[in-house]
Design a protein around this nucleic acid. Structure first.
Ligand SMILES: [Mn+2]
Ligand SMILES: [Mn+2]
Ligand SMILES: [Mn+2]
Ligand SMILES: [Mn+2]
Lengths: 219, 219
DNA sequence: AATAATTGTTAGATTTGTCTAACTTTAAAC
DNA sequence: GTTTAAAGTTAGACAAATCTAACAATTATT
């Protein structure tokens, strides 16, 4: 269908659109680590395939077709991550790089089987929603822990900008999805937070960390 | 390391060398469905990387380095096939196409995990040996069923030239690896064989079939 | 409003992997 | 031993995906 390269552009366009709204050639260039002229000619090519709406000097937008294709690739990525964690015993910090490659495998059977073995999961190991078989994503509305206040109790639903280093940090603090977290206080000077969770712990989380933790309020 | 394309050439060179002894540009061209001039320039490139011994108009030979690289790709292919069958419930006729793609994934962890989960298997679902982590293959010496005679009892060890159609045929006759087969008679006219195996069956196997079944003689 | 910085585009070169057409060498047939 | 067929090679073209250098448009700063 599409090349490995085209698939990576589509995925990046999709993810950037959901993070920052408008997507520029420059954004794409940075995230893919590919120079702007290359990105420029590639998005024109994708426009030729009706996957992207392209107008000179205007923000880039995926077409409906483009969104669907991107969603299907992201579906494969996230199903793979879930499979690696749930069925192969990898840690959530180890799976992204492998999924980055396996997402390009062409085989409905393979991913359907994963899906079935996993019991048709709705989220991946980092709490991101897994698009359905039509490529549609069912967004979960979380808020950042950093936007919550002292006294509130929340449940950790997802992590964003989850690099290997960040996830290892979360491991070291025993922070995992589903955890109930009580916010004891917020330091107004630097936005750091004192929280408690699990057994007997009292931890301080920097703003850098609390901005990357997505939670839902409970109780 | 090497490109997807280069890996496919190495693998084809390795497999052809073990089937036919000498490998020609023409053989490679046919098996890869790539025209001779393209193959010619590619093997020269591989020679430049010290993966192939190349001399004009002479048969092609993998270097030790080339054999090792090829062995490691075939290791990934066969471990994947075994994983798909043993851990994901695919039939032996369904796994080759998927493995053909997954063999190019770069991730030691991923394949080591498969290996571990499978209990360090020595053969794949078709009875082919899985190369070790240094790329070395421990050849098993089987003979073709077609080379055996009436009265002999053999065990089915491997299948060769195992296309999806052939494997489906074997499924339909309940022929699977490990099966004990008694040769009742051999028709000298067309080489067909009357055999018995499993419960109460008496089957006739054409030469086309018995040539693709590798067996070991048993007591 | 003028200037500077950033972003976007065009043009042209490069690498990889493929092709066709033409030619050469080796092997097979007569 | 010629002649014919098959296999191998060389030369040149091409599409995909990348780059650099130069130029243009937009946005931000003063
Ligand atoms: Mn990921
Ligand atoms: Mn990718
Ligand atoms: Mn196979
Ligand atoms: Mn392959």
């Amino acid at each position: 269908m599409h090349s490995h390269t085209e698939e990576n552009y589509l995925k990046a366009l999709f993810n950037l659109a959901n993070e920052k709204g408008e997507v520029s050639v420059n954004d794409l260039s940075k995230i893919l680590a590919i120079k702007m002229p290359t990105v420029n000619s590639m998005v024109k090519k994708l426009a030729g395939k009706k996957l992207v709406h392209y107008e000179s000097y205007k923000p880039l937008r995926l077409t409906e077709k483009g969104k669907k294709e991107a969603g299907l690739i992201i579906r494969k990525h996230r199903l793979t991550e879930m499979f690696l964690v749930q069925k192969m015993g990898f840690g959530w910090e180890q799976v992204h790089e492998i999924a980055e490659q396996i997402e390009h495998i062409h085989s409905p059977y393979f991913f359907d089987k994963m899906d079935e073995m996993l019991g048709y999961p709705k989220i991946d190991p980092h709490g991101s929603p897994i698009p359905d078989k039509t490529g549609k994503v069912d967004w979960i509305r979380y808020e950042k822990l950093s936007d919550c206040g002292a006294g509130e109790t929340v449940r950790l639903g997802a992590v964003i900008h989850s690099t290997e280093e960040f996830l290892k940090f979360l491991n070291s603090r025993k922070l995992h999805l589903g955890l109930k977290i009580k916010i004891k206080s917020v330091e107004s000077f630097d936005g750091s937070m004192v929280v408690s969770y699990g057994k007997n712990s009292t931890e301080t989380l920097s703003l850098t960390v609390s901005e990357r933790l997505l939670v839902e309020k409970i109780g």
